[in-house]
Amino acid sequence: MTTANDQSLNTITSERRRLTNLAYRLLGSLSEAEDAVQETYARWYALPRHHRDAVEAPGAWLAKVAARICLDVLGSARVRRERYVGEWLPEPLPDSTPWTTGPTGGATVDPADRISLDESLGMAFLVVLESMTPAERVAFVLHDVFRYSFAEIAGIVGRTPAACRQLASSARRRVRASRTPTAPAAHQAGIVRNFGQAWQAQDIRALIGLLDPDATVVADGGGLTRASLRPVEGGERIAHHLTRLIAKAPRTATVVERTVNGRPGLAARHDGATVAVYAFDVAGERITRIWAVLNPEKLRPWATG
């Protein structure tokens, strides 16, 4: 027999996936998102029982608290990232299955199965979010991705609804200015596969043919592993740069096809561990951007992938 307490507990625990979806988009880090969700639940259970019973919509209460926690984290994160060694990239989400049967086909594994994959989780989108102020990011994600009203957002960010509307509008302009035509996933898969094969074969000519002349590579090593501190620009320069990297790699290192944030990407593996994850932006027949995450602290969810 199910009691009212059981129903309440089920309602609360069923919100975890939605809260993690929200927090990851706000923070760009799965580990920080999980910490924020954990803190949200800690605050819920710290409430006196009669206060919890008085909450008419526990899911809304949890989401509001989680968003406020994320807003605080974003403020402190901006200070930390100013001291970050090299470029800072969002933490890539894994899918342990290759994308040979489709970029989102197959069963995902923990922790990726706690995140609903869509355009708002693409690496390009998350990188743009990093250029926003904390208030802009929260207002935009809550309104445009999760469909919160500006009145609800005002209560979270401590601004008026009109001010929140302006924040979201400013953020939306940033997104539109950065948006480029995105190749369908199946088409991107073919381009990325050819790129991976050419890279492992150290075929510079093929790499140059697959890279846009104005392509850019951004690498994030966090000062914990060797990585370019500044973006590498230009298709030909990138081809030579990547060829040098693969030539220095151990013979046992491999590059495998993996889904990264819901899109076809690559992962470099050595001695059973993922040492780098590569996300791509493809326009037409060429790769325009590559995001390389090498920071081992950001690759912990890929340990079993």
Rank of each mutant, 00 (worst) to 15 (best):
G272L: 10
S170R: 10
G209T: 14
Q166E: 05
I204L: 08
A267L: 10
N194Y: 01
E56H: 10
G102Y: 02
K298Q: 10
Q200T: 11
V145N: 05
R176G: 00
R159A: 06
V79H: 02
E285H: 14
T3Y: 01
P231C: 14
G284N: 11
R237D: 14
L299N: 10
A163T: 02
V128I: 09
V141Q: 07
Q202R: 09
D113W: 08
H187C: 01
R258F: 13
F146N: 07
N21D: 13
W61C: 03
Q202T: 11
V79Y: 01
A36G: 00
A112N: 02
E236P: 14
A177K: 01
S31K: 13
F280A: 09
A283W: 14
R174K: 09
S76K: 01
P92M: 00
D95S: 10
T20M: 04
T104Q: 04
E87S: 05
Y148D: 04
N5K: 03
V37F: 11
A77K: 05
T133R: 10
R289T: 13
P296W: 09
S131E: 14
P264E: 13
A253W: 07
A268N: 12
G284A: 15
W44G: 09
S170G: 04
A186T: 01
R25W: 00
V192T: 09
G86R: 02
H241Y: 15
G102D: 02
S116T: 09
P301F: 11
V260H: 13
T11Q: 12
S31W: 03
L117K: 00
D144K: 07
I204G: 04
V55W: 02
V277C: 08
D118F: 00
E130Y: 08
P111L: 11
L89M: 04
E82L: 07
R230G: 12
G158M: 05
Q188A: 08
S29E: 03
G223F: 13
G223L: 14
A154M: 03
A42P: 02
E56W: 08
S29M: 06
R52A: 09
A171K: 04
A198E: 05
L89I: 01
A276Y: 09
L211D: 15
R193E: 06
G262A: 11
G28D: 06
V37D: 06
I238A: 14
